[in-house]
């Protein structure tokens, strides 16, 4: 073999513009990604700075104080935190079992596939209804039913008391319970459709294995399908909870907007998001604005924590499936 048989190749270190395009694209996308992060940090900082007058005056007392009095300039967030958590909790209490039921129904073969698919689509469509429409519906359609239900509960179960006050007290109509029920309808599509996707992703072979062992459909669902889907279902529930906590418009329209912590489920209450929506327009004093920002910061923290948990759970499911 002679040296002349070597193929002639071009200098590899010189080259076309391809690499430059890669670099530009990379910076562009990286920039976009970091922009999101920057906005998040910026928002937090702006909120913290605006909340400073209230933070320095009330400190952590804000979290345990029930007073909200713009005239005396005395602000505490406890009633709003309570209203936010309690209304979301009622919503979850209704939406989780119902949503899971829908998800199970839509993944089993009770109905033919060409009937189930439109139903599943309509469930997802529930999520597309603007929340102000939910609020209107809540006031004009749901409220009469709720009031009738509350009256019935008050008459028949009004004797159940904490201390000397009834849990099922005077039927107001607008109140914590109404807000919880409305929220449950709003988060139902999130819980039902994600749970359905998770249940659908479970291999058919597991279902067959259980049936072939002689288990019934229900034993198969409760002993194999739901446990296998559990982390994904928890993720779905936490996402639903996140939406319930942050929901503003519909809740503002039906919760009664009264800053109080009452033993009665039916009493009016207030949530953080409803407070912000109602009072920002008329807040002039720096301390009032600061207190509102402080409350907003609390809401931000709660939703952030809930969403981080959801992300962790959902991630665990998708990695477990590989």
């Amino acid at each position: 073999m002679t040296a002349s048989s070597k193929p002639q190749i071009e200098n590899l270190t010189t080259g076309s513009g391809k690499l430059q395009a890669d670099t530009i694209a990379r910076w562009l996308f990286q920039g976009a990604a970091f922009l999101v992060l920057a906005v998040l940090v910026w928002m937090t900082v702006v909120m913290a700075i605006s909340a400073m007058p209230a933070i320095s005056k009330f400190g952590f007392n804000f979290l345990i104080d029930k007073t909200w009095d713009p005239i005396q300039e005395q602000y505490g967030g406890l009633t709003f935190v309570f209203g936010t958590i309690a209304s979301s909790f009622i919503a979850m209490l209704i939406a989780v079992p119902v949503g899971l039921g829908i998800a199970i129904f839509l993944t089993e073969d009770f109905l033919p596939e060409n009937v189930l698919t439109p139903i599943a689509f309509m469930v997802e469509l529930l999520a597309a209804i603007p929340s102000v429409v939910y609020g209107l519906w809540g006031i004009f359609v749901m409220a009469p039913f709720i009031r009738a239900f509350e009256t019935w509960m008050n008459t028949n179960l009004g004797f159940i008391k904490i201390g000397d006050k009834s849990i099922f007290g005077t039927p107001y109509g607008p109140g914590l319970f109404s807000a919880g029920v409305l929220l449950s309808i709003m988060i139902l599509p999130t819980i039902a459709s994600i749970s359905r996707d998770v249940l659908k992703a479970i291999p058919k072979s597991l279902r067959n294995a259980s049936l072939a062992l002689g288990a019934t459909r229900w034993e198969t669902i409760f002993r194999v399908m739901l446990p296998a889907a559990s982390s994904g279902i928890i993720g779905a529930c936490v996402l639903g909870l996140g939406r319930a906590i942050g929901e503003t418009m519909a809740v503002t329209m039906v919760i009664g907007n009264t800053p109080q912590i009452d033993t009665s489920l039916f009493a009016p209450a207030y949530t953080i998001s409803a407070l912000l929506a109602n009072e920002f327009a008329e807040a002039n004093e720096p301390l009032h604005i600061g207190a509102l920002f402080y409350a907003g910061l609390l809401l931000f923290a709660v939703t952030l924590i809930v969403n981080v948990f959801a992300e962790i759970f959902v991630r665990r499911v998708s990695s477990g499936r590989q």
């Binding site: 291999p203 072979s205 597991l206 067959n208 294995a209 259980s210 072939a212 062992l213 194999v224 446990p227 296998a228 477990g320």
Partner: peptide
């Protein structure tokens, strides 16, 4: 009548 399938299908437990 027990059954063993084409692909092993242990439950995730």
């Amino acid at each position: 009548v027990g059954m063993v399938f084409q692909r092993p299908n242990p439950f995730p437990m």
